[in-house]
Amino acid sequence: MAVFNLNINGKKQTVDVDPNTPMLWVLRDHLKLVGTKYGCGIAQCGSCTIHLSGIAVRACVLTVSAVGNQEVTTIEGLSENADHPVQKAWLEVDVPQCGYCQTGQIMTAAALLEQNPNPSDSEIEMAMNGNICRCGTYTRIKKAVQLAAESNNS
């Protein structure tokens, strides 16, 4: 066990855990931030996507000891009032079915638009291909990403 001082959603958080613990379980078990989802544990499904210094990463394979003082953003910290352009677009298009993968999809999409505010269809597909939606809402996810990009650029 070791003590880690983390910077999560703009707040200092201290946890005392095994240094190999993935951030996924630090967030879910220790900090009760359960919007970051467990799907596969091997970085294949994207359900656990968070931002590490603004980059989309899979929290299931990111150990707590690798984070250091980098800024971590989870879905709970993406916006104050569910008003991030990506969240608004998700609601406007009414994307979710079961909804389990959607926080990971939103975090991937938000990081994409941060780096590429005006992505082409194939750039959207490339960025979003790491996130599985078992319900098959891909056409709506793409529509919502396009809508968020448009609202950002208008």
Partner: peptide, 10 residues
């Protein structure tokens, strides 16, 4: 979806 706002905020 009545749960939409809760889903997109995790």
């Amino acid at each position: 979806n009545v749960d939409g706002p809760k889903i997109v905020t995790g």
